[in-house]
Design a protein around this nucleic acid. Structure first.
Lengths: 154, 154
DNA sequence: CTTGACCCTGCCACCGTGGGAACCCTGAGG
DNA sequence: CCTCAGGGTTCCCACGGTGGCAGGGTCAAG
């Protein structure tokens, strides 16, 4: 029966670890759109096709998709994920490499958190002093209008 | 002397509240590129031009640019800034409108901060358990590889 | 007249995601 | 057989903001 590596009959592809892109999307939590995108940018290797040119996904592919999904959920950028995938697939990787990537990403996250917290602090202060009624006086607008140096958080 | 409203001689434009885009950029902290962009999307009204088609900025324009810059620094998205600018220019605005926009923005910031903090917490935990040496064992990759439900922070 | 520092417009890129058009394929029901 | 729904396929466009570059015009100083 046509369980060949390269091209498949559609009917052979049902069940036992073979599924079309829609099912792979449901199982992995990655949208159909994104699965194709990941393949296009080489994050996911090209999958087998049926004779009708349908993509066919095996268990391993879905596993990889879940890996990517999880990494995205943790905020890793694509470039990091590319490296993490390579390390994952390389059984003899040094865990230090992985840790370094994760550490770098964490640093970036922390920096952005600090930035946003500083924004929130300023906004809290401004809205606290704004009565927020029908009158036009508004310290928020006053702050935005200057005259502090531009680009600084006051 | 040619201090007309619509078109200006270049030489007339120097000094006294009139400057070209480069100077406006330096004074406002907004890049030349972005100044043009803000004008293109209607955030900044079209400015006067010299006969040679150079943009000419007045004090008020630079003031507006600083307003935008400050709002960007506080993380407001363009759409919010558009509204804030309108309110700023409307002397009889109710401060409640401003407060509402700021509050909505703050909520978004806080939500994103929480998301990122949750990412950091997970990553801290994972990297803490990863020895980060030459050996391949790595809880970070193990986590990414599942088998938890995709799309959740564990 | 030349040079260097500006300015102008317009197009492309990033990242990650979604939307949609135009088309092909499959399976089920009349 | 034909039709119809519900997939799949490719390709292009959009977003928010920002930067870069190409190919031109202009201005002041030497």
């Amino acid at each position: 029966m046509g369980k060949a590596d390269v091209f498949l009959e559609h009917a052979d592809a049902i069940g036992r670890g073979l599924r079309d892109i829609g099912r792979a999307a449901k199982e992995s939590g990655v949208s159909v759109k994104m699965i194709r995108h990941y393949e296009a940018i080489g994050l996911l290797k090209k999958v087998t096709r049926t004779y009708a040119n349908y993509r066919v996904y095996r268990d391993g592919d879905v596993h990889t998709l879940r890996f990517i999904k999880r990494a995205r959920t943790l905020g890793f950028p694509m470039e990091d994920i590319r490296e993490l995938l390579a390390l994952w697939q390389n059984k003899s990787r040094p865990s230090a490499s992985v840790k370094k990537i994760a550490g770098g990403h964490m640093q970036g996250l922390k920096r952005r958190i600090l930035e946003m917290q500083s924004m929130v602090a300023t906004l809290e202060h401004l809205t606290h002093n704004c009565h927020g009624d029908g009158r036009p006086d508004c310290p928020i607008l006053d702050d935005l209008a200057g005259p502090g140096k531009p680009g600084t958080l006051r």
